[in-house]
Design a protein around this nucleic acid. Sequence first.
DNA 1: AGGACAATTACCCAAATGGGTAATTTTGTT
DNA 2: AACAAAATTACCCATTTGGGTAATTGTCCT
Lengths: 210, 210
Amino acid sequence: MDEFEIISVAIVEDDTEIRQILSLIVDRSPGYSCKQSFSDCESALDGIRKDPPDVVLMDIGLPRMSGIDGVRALKEKLPETDFIMLTIQDDDDSVFNSLCAGATGYLLKDTPPTELLHSIREVRKGGSPMSPNIARKIVGSFRRAPESPLTSRESEILDKLCNGDNYKTIATSLFISGNTVRAHIKAIYRKLHVTSRAQAVRTAISKKLI
Amino acid sequence: MDEFEIISVAIVEDDTEIRQILSLIVDRSPGYSCKQSFSDCESALDGIRKDPPDVVLMDIGLPRMSGIDGVRALKEKLPETDFIMLTIQDDDDSVFNSLCAGATGYLLKDTPPTELLHSIREVRKGGSPMSPNIARKIVGSFRRAPESPLTSRESEILDKLCNGDNYKTIATSLFISGNTVRAHIKAIYRKLHVTSRAQAVRTAISKKLI
DNA sequence: AGGACAATTACCCAAATGGGTAATTTTGTT
DNA sequence: AACAAAATTACCCATTTGGGTAATTGTCCT
């Protein structure tokens, strides 16, 4: 993807006015082309494969199939295409599910046209354009939970639990008895509302306790 | 943090020349101030608390304590300060460990001065400035592994395993016998090189198999 | 000094798990 | 049709796990 190649863009957006405006902005800008736009994922799935675009701008709140499921389905067929979510949704679920579904960028609809065009260029150059607070949200997801319901000893044991250590191994490595380990693990289960190691590991990871 | 407030910046960078150039770039730019710069984390830890800066530009490859450990230590003391890694390291470990340690931005050293200043402003406005390929790396980390050593049935069972389901529950929900579930789980353990549910869950999540 | 919380240890017992082995059926591909 | 891979089922047995209950010791803060 060199610097001056024309980038073909497709748009999936149910609001007719917004769709037309976006289409115009992109198509009228030098270096960009927008020949396809769709009002829902179903027609996009149908029409987009004839002439795969370089980049798809995808809304989330669409009738029937959501933009997130749309990305999942389209990315399957067009792995070379970059998908940028362009939406008003800024909740965690929308953001993380979009990325898991295969979106490479995530912009909010208040993104000014210049930024939007720059983002389309950037995603083709190997970047991942994101609105600032979206980027912050994503980066923040790598932090450990600031407050844990567990005591420090319990956290220590949870950590070993996640490594797959059994009672004896944990007991030996902490120089305490197996019974004590069990007592701590019971406390951990109670606090995390789980009843097995597998659930404890899953919860520990998803709640960023370790 | 309003638009026109002067942002105070501190720099931790062992290369004297780079440190001085960075310091000059920041300090000479309107709206920015750089009154503190350090050649290692130890002196930064010592000197930075007197006058906590808004933003710290942190190198990674430093003598003794690495910039990553430096961020962890400093962020503890100065939770309001934003840390931007400014480094040549672009490997996965450096990136993800930095974010886990508390960095909010991650820039490569080839970032032009204008971009750098813009990034400092952006991090204060609630964003997370990242070099394009770093952003892509981070976003990519949310995708599921494209290829799994497991068969589709095994993946299905691994998924339920991660939910904490036991043999019977899995068997019932898949309309197969508990013995079959066990057979699949044995195959999963063999392929993932684990010997327990806890390890299987951890591996499944870390390798993005689910 | 007292109270709250954390850490430690112990025991009983039912249920679940993990390893080994073996065989049949289904499915997919050449 | 033939072969390979996957899915299915079964049984034996030792080990581990999870739930319940109870008690002692240490530490921190009021």
